[in-house]
Design a protein around this nucleic acid. Sequence first.
DNA 1: TCTTTTTGTAATGTGTAACGTTACATGATA
DNA 2: TATCATGTAACGTTACACATTACAAAAAGA
Lengths: 104, 104
Amino acid sequence: MNDDMIIVSREPIHPGEFLREEYMADLDLSVADLARRLGVTRQTVNDIVREKRGLSPDMCLRLGRLFGTTPQFWMNMQAKVDIWNSMALHADDIEAIEPMAVAL
Amino acid sequence: MNDDMIIVSREPIHPGEFLREEYMADLDLSVADLARRLGVTRQTVNDIVREKRGLSPDMCLRLGRLFGTTPQFWMNMQAKVDIWNSMALHADDIEAIEPMAVAL
DNA sequence: TCTTTTTGTAATGTGTAACGTTACATGATA
DNA sequence: TATCATGTAACGTTACACATTACAAAAAGA
């Protein structure tokens, strides 16, 4: 049971939703406000918050810097939705792969 | 000190290097071999192993399936190099961001 | 040895996703 | 009312993962 042993059993929360509800709401930040502080366009923040866009590594760095978290925190959150979406899309191909008997 | 509290102090190892040295070497897998098992092209495996390409979520799922690890394991490894590269590229812009005094 | 296959890799085209720019309707403020 | 800020749609650019095609070198088989 390592750090990465997080079994995704339900749809993970989109970073945009988290950002919107946990940070912007609590800190009373508008889209324009946050964009300004992050040094990106309103469009960029808006798309993320509307869950139309994921978090790039760059954006994770910015959010980490602004809010005093690790970039990894945001990367992990994004990774979960990426894995979830990819699994929803290619589950069949993935499960067609024969697991190897491996003893490292 | 959470799971994501991994301070990146030195250049992280590329998943391709890890794959090459820890798995392919030990299990005596060729590029073509691995590609076949993963259900992707030789080109795809080759580019990853030559560190010319990163791991997509899809590829992380495949590797996890084949080797019996979590997809997250590979995602985390990739995330570290993504963050590292992005930081190397935009360090100035990131540090120009004024951290907020936040008490969640 | 000659032929056939397999292997690693370069080159090319495609699809997708993050991003900035521009534009605009709505709403706040002077 | 006139000005300015906000949220968001539309568009073009850029980057990247991927499959396809092509090919030289090595391996395997005749």
